Computed example of a mutant assay.
Amino acid sequence: MKDPSFVAFATQKGGAGKTTLTVLTASYLYYVKKMKVLVVDCDYPQYSVKELRDRDLQITRINKSFATTVKEQLNNLDVDPYPILMCRPEEAMGKVKALYDKGEHYDIVLFDMSGTINNPGVAKTVSLMDYIFIPVTADKIVLESSLAFAIKVRDEILTLPDSSIREMHMLWNKVDAREKTDLYDKYEIVFEEQLLTTLKTRLPDRKRYSREVGEDGDRAVFRCTLLPPDKKLLRGSGFPELLDELLGIIKL
C-alpha cells in the first residue's frame, strides 16, 4: 500500500477560491481520472466542502434530471461519491491514519484548511502536507494576505524538523483579462524575491467556477461533489491545464 500525496489549497483570506479549487480538483481526479480521492474538510467551523456535498444531495431529492445524471454517472464508474472527512484541523491526520488502519487507501488526500495559520492545530496539519498551493488574486488585500501566509509557512513551518512539505507554490486565480499581463509578472518578481515559486497556469475569472446545480432544470454544472466539471464548461477554463501542471509536480 503506497502512501498518498497530502495536498492543500491553503490561504488565510476568504474569497481566494481555495474551497472551489479543492472541490474541482477532487471531482476531476475522482470522476475523470479515476484516482482514489479523500477530501478532508477541516475548514472549521463552516465546513464548506461538507456543506456543498449536503446541498448536492438535497438537490438530488428535488431535481429528478440531476438525480438521474448522478445515478448514471456513478453506475457507469461503479463507484460511490468520493468520501469527505469532516474534522477539526488538529484531528485531521489522526482520522486519516485511522482510515488507513482500517484498510482504506487513496492516491491523493486533499485538505480544505482553515485560514487561521496562528492556530497551533492548523499550523501542525499544514506542516504535514506534501504540497501546498496558495491561491492568490490581484486584489491588494487578498494578495497581501496570501503573501503573508506563504512567508509565515516558509519561515515558521517549513523549518520545523518534522515538516513534510516538499513544495509550495503560488497560484494565480480569478485573473481578469482586462488587467495587463505585466501586472502579474511584476507581482511574480515580488514572489521570487521572497523565494516563492508561481505556477505557470493562471486561472481566468469566470462565473462558471461557482456554477452549481439548481433545484430545477438540467443546466450544466461546474462545481459539484457528485459530478465532474461539465466538459463544455471546462473549455477555456484553464482548469485541465492546471491539473496537468499539478499532477506533474505531485508525480501522480
Rank of each mutant, 00 (worst) to 15 (best):
E91T: 06
A220C: 08
K71N: 10
L21Y: 05
L143T: 12
V23S: 12
V126P: 02
R211W: 07
P81R: 13
A150Q: 02
E188M: 03
Y31V: 02
T11C: 15
A67S: 12
L243E: 11
Y44E: 14
L246Y: 15
D78Y: 13
L52T: 00
S65K: 14
C42A: 04
R53F: 15
A10R: 01
E215H: 10
E91K: 08
A148I: 03
M1R: 11
T197F: 01
D176S: 09
S163L: 08
I151M: 15
D112R: 00
V49G: 01
I151Q: 12
R53V: 10
T159A: 02
L52N: 01
N118E: 14
E156V: 00
V190N: 03
M86C: 11
F111G: 03
L110W: 13
E241Y: 01
I108D: 07
K140R: 11
I151L: 15
E241M: 11
I189Q: 15
A16R: 07
A138S: 14
N76S: 14
M1L: 08
W172Y: 14
F6P: 06
L52R: 01
Y47R: 04
S210E: 11
I249A: 05
L158H: 00
T68E: 15
E167I: 01
Q73T: 14
R235W: 00
I151H: 11
S127D: 03
K207P: 06
G14C: 05
S65N: 14
